[in-house]
């Protein structure tokens, strides 16, 4: 918990760090890292109910497109909120349809949803179709650090949501749903409501991240915005960092993006070979993720549910 606060504090004061000539680059990289981290946090929110979503990329894409299309009329914040709302609404429909699916069946159903959504956006006229959609920068590009603080704000929001859910009674219900639906029902947990609510929160966050991404890259195309790679990244990070926690996805996201960037700069050709190797070693040697490493050291401390 203290560590989470420390990281968020660092995020907020990061732009005043004396990074010299590296500053602009690190700020740019940090923005993309924040966006991916929010996506990872959002995936973890749903994973806490035992549901493994591969639709995170679709919510991201829906949020990105909705924000990109509406920002000229609604402004930066309005566009982002609409993006989150569209993503949330679609998750409600998807959630209702897939309520009874579990495990890999749920995963593939959400993957299917994602692929269908991408095709729809690809075929629609108003989205710019395959050619893509130009997006205006956040706040009209007038504020230099605007993009950075927007991404940082969404990161803070994601972390707070994750923390709040972890401390609320919802987390017990989620854990119960994860252990097994039958058990949960016996315990009197309204599994349906818990799952839908988690899905709603998760997709809204993912949509928000998508909107910020759109305003950062300034250009959306269906294959990029709805990319399956992003859905996979959203699940890789929490596993790497530590599942069902806030610290795990937060630390995992920032570290993995930093690692990937560093490897790309240092090794260039074939840096992803090393990246893959690191993922494998991580699973073999720290099965509980980064957070597990942390906890193993401080075993004496009482079980801290929220990291």
């Amino acid at each position: 918990m203290r560590l989470v606060g420390l990281i968020l504090g660092l995020v907020l004061v990061f732009p005043v760090f004396p990074l010299g000539r590296w500053q602009a680059f690190t700020l740019d990289t940090a923005q993309f890292a924040f966006i991916v981290t929010v996506l990872a946090l959002s995936w973890d929110l749903l994973a806490r109910t035992g549901q493994l979503s591969l639709a995170q990329g679709a919510f991201f894409g829906l949020g990105a497109y909705a924000a990109g299309l509406s920002a000229p009329a609604l402004g930066t914040i309005g566009g982002l909120l609409l993006g989150a709302a569209v993503a949330a609404l679609s998750s409600l429909l998807l959630g209702l349809a897939t309520l009874r699916l579990q495990g890999i069946y749920f995963a593939i159903a959400t993957l299917a949803f994602s692929e269908v959504m991408r095709t729809l956006v690809l075929k629609a006229e108003f989205t710019g179709g395959a050619t893509g959609l130009p997006v205006a920068p956040a706040f009209g590009g007038s504020w230099v650090l605007g993009g950075y603080y927007l991404a940082a704000a969404v990161l803070v929001l994601g972390v707070l949501t994750s923390l709040w859910v972890g401390r609320s009674r919802l987390s017990y219900a989620q854990a119960a749903a994860r252990q097994g639906e039958a058990v949960a029902r016996v315990l009197g947990v309204a599994v349906v409501r818990v799952k839908l609510l988690s899905f709603l929160l998760s997709s809204a966050l993912a949509g928000l991240a998508g909107g910020v991404y759109a305003m950062k890259t300034l250009f959306l195309s269906p294959y990029d915005a709805f990319g399956l790679g992003r859905a996979v990244e959203a699940l890789v990070i929490p596993i790497f960092g530590g599942l069902y926690t806030t610290l795990g996805p937060l630390l995992g996201g920032l570290l993995l993006v930093a690692l990937e960037t560093w490897l790309r700069l240092e090794i260039k050709d074939g840096y992803l070979v090393v990246y893959g190797l690191i993922l494998i070693l991580a699973i073999l040697f720290m099965p509980k993720g980064l957070v597990g490493l942390w906890r193993a050291r401080g075993k004496t401390a009482k079980e801290d549910r929220n990291a």
């Binding site: 000539r21 590296w22 500053q23 602009a24 680059f25 740019d28 993309f32 950062k216 960037t261 700069l265």
Partner: peptide, 12 residues
């Protein structure tokens, strides 16, 4: 990846 890479070329 391209946007940060360009930023690095320009500023670093």
């Amino acid at each position: 990846k391209a946007v940060p890479a360009l930023t690095k070329l320009m500023t670093v």
